[in-house]
């Protein structure tokens, strides 16, 4: 079993390994095996299509946390240019679980704020598995105020299991840091576009996710609590995570149908991690399009629309 692949991806992994093996053989000898390789490639594609046509909410939850999934800095490199990372909340510390800075999107200035997970073990620990502490949210708030001052649109990329539940985080006011961002973003005088690129973990995600337009990558998730957390509270057993994921409706499609997400950005076959470049191009196109549309709207109307969007109540009676 290949640990870089999820269980339902294993058949694909096996085929891909075989193709790679054949390619090596082909390189070493004069035998023409191109035809054979192409056949296997086609098989791999149709296998992937089949598997991905029937993904359950829990499969998607795990895809959203896939160890190979592109993270914020991957998209920063591929989607934006001229990025200057800016650090620190000016009060206590710099939180590596949130990255922020100014960059260009198709030449235009933007403020980027995103959760950052680590790839290798040391890096994972350094990034605290993408779980911000209060200083991360306060750094984000500082960037947002700066963006407002210089009339730069804010683009946030969401990918966190949640805000860090630690002793120091509580001492330094995790709740207040999150709450303050929600209030700040709700009235920030510049357009905000948020995109869930992986895991949208509860308040820790929302704290950089109050926006004018919410996009979600096809295999990203967004929920009030992790499926495991929900299962361990409501089912008293975290092994019911799949049931909890289905009950909460954590997927992009479901959230779009509920009117929470505005737009689902399709991922390449097999998920963003199978073709990062294509994914980045799609994301760039969507962000540019959404940003252009938001910049057409006079600021006052934009704020009014944002407020209505945030405070609407659409119970059926």
């Amino acid at each position: 079993m290949n640990p870089q692949y999820l269980d339902f991806e294993q058949p694909i992994a096996e085929l891909e390994d075989k193709i790679e093996e054949l390619r090596q053989v082909g390189n070493d000898t004069d035998i023409n095996i191109t035809e054979e390789i192409n056949k296997l490639r086609n098989k791999s594609t149709s296998l992937t299509e089949n598997i991905f046509a029937n993904l359950q909410a829990w499969d998607i939850s795990r895809l959203a946390r896939h160890p190979q999934r592109p993270y914020t800095l991957d998209y920063v490199r591929e989607v934006f240019t001229d990025f200057d990372e800016l650090h620190g909340d000016r009060t206590y510390a710099d939180d590596p679980a949130i990255v922020s800075g100014i960059a260009r999107l198709n030449g235009q200035s933007v403020m980027i704020i995103g959760h950052q997970k680590g790839r290798e073990i040391r890096d994972k620990v350094h990034r605290n598995f993408g779980m911000p502490r209060p200083e991360g949210y306060r750094k984000a708030a500082r960037m947002m105020r700066m963006a407002e001052r210089f009339q730069i649109p804010v683009i946030t990329l969401i990918d966190t299991p949640g805000a860090y539940p630690g002793i120091g985080a509580e001492e330094r006011g995790q709740s207040e840091a999150i709450a303050n961002n929600l209030a700040l973003m709700s009235r920030l005088k510049t357009p905000i576009i948020s995109t869930v690129i992986g895991e949208g973990g509860s308040g820790g995600a929302l704290a950089i996710g109050v926006c004018d337009r919410l996009c979600m990558l096809q295999y990203s998730t967004y929920a009030v609590i992790s499926p495991e957390g929900c299962a361990s509270i409501l089912w008293k057993n975290s092994e019911y995570a799949a049931e909890a994921a289905a009950a909460m409706g954590v997927t992009a499609e479901r959230l779009k149908s509920l009117g929470v997400a505005d737009r689902v950005i399709p991922e390449p076959l097999g998920g963003a991690h199978r073709d990062q470049e294509t994914m980045a191009v799609s994301l760039q196109d969507v962000l540019a399009e959404e940003l252009a549309a938001l910049q057409e709207i006079p600021l006052e109307d934009l704020l009014q629309q944002r407020y209505e969007r945030l405070t609407r109540y659409d119970a059926s009676k």
């Binding site: 929600l182 209030a183 929302l206 909460m248 509920l258 929470v260 407020y307 945030l310």
Partner: peptide, 19 residues
């Protein structure tokens, strides 16, 4: 939790009103 994402959005809703 039983209202899932809708309940999460109440955080933004109440905070916006307070702002």
């Amino acid at each position: 939790m039983q209202e899932a994402i809708v309940s999460l959005m109440q955080m933004a809703k109440t905070s916006a009103a307070l702002q």
